[in-house]
Amino acid sequence: MLEPFLLRALLFGLGLAIVAAPLGCFVVWRRMAYYGEAIAQAALIGVALALALSFDVTAGVLIVTLAVSGLLLLLGRQQAVPFDSLLGLIAHAALAVGVIAASLASGRQPDLLGFLFGDILAISNADLWWLLVGGAVAMAALTAIWRPLLSLSVHADIAAAEGTGTDGVRLVFVAVLALVVAIAIKIVGALLTIAFLIMPAAAARPLARTPEQMAIIAGVYGMLAVAAGLFLSVAWDTPAGPSIVLVLAALFTLSIVPSVLRR
């Protein structure tokens, strides 16, 4: 029978894969991979904050991911620096601050590695609650804005002109992304969270003919990768996050073979 910690990790991972799938599709469609990367790396500051002040890590991370999202919205209005450069700058500045702060706060390096790359041992019952409640909120919000967000992603100006896509929709999406990133940090780590979001979606793209199909296929791939990755992790004592991402990378590679051969 499964060890309790492994069962928790499996439940957590499978649940997260379901939530991450539709969200990851939008990250791919809206070209926000690098944006998500910046948010996720900044999450490390939240980890350090939570460790230093000894409160719930996910809550600490959520505060920071939301704050950085807000900061990026403001910075996005300036034209002096290209937005992707800005994202790279913030991602790495946040990573530097986060790593330094987390190592000062915890005093022990192994903790830090867990937060960078994920740690199945770290999944607690509290994390499962976070996933259950946060995941339900994320799914509900995403369902509510699905149609306008999709039309916004296909063509922002048409959506704006016809009144179907508003800034409110964007804000909800960014908040949902911050929430799911905060939850995902635990199992896949700050450095691999975005991979967990975009890789299932990217692997699902060649098979999908509708946006919803893509989200569903991504969910299946994500769950497969969680199960296989955790198995690898237990069998060879590899870190959880990289093991899951490795499986996803393999799935993606398989998925694009037909379209590469066709050319």
Binding site: R30, R31, M32, Y34, Y35, L72, L73, G76, R77, P82, F83, D84, L87, L152, S153, A156, D157, D167, R170, L171
Partner: peptide, 10 residues
Amino acid sequence: QGREGLDWPL
């Protein structure tokens, strides 16, 4: 990343 400027951020 080129498309980001089009509709993203706000």
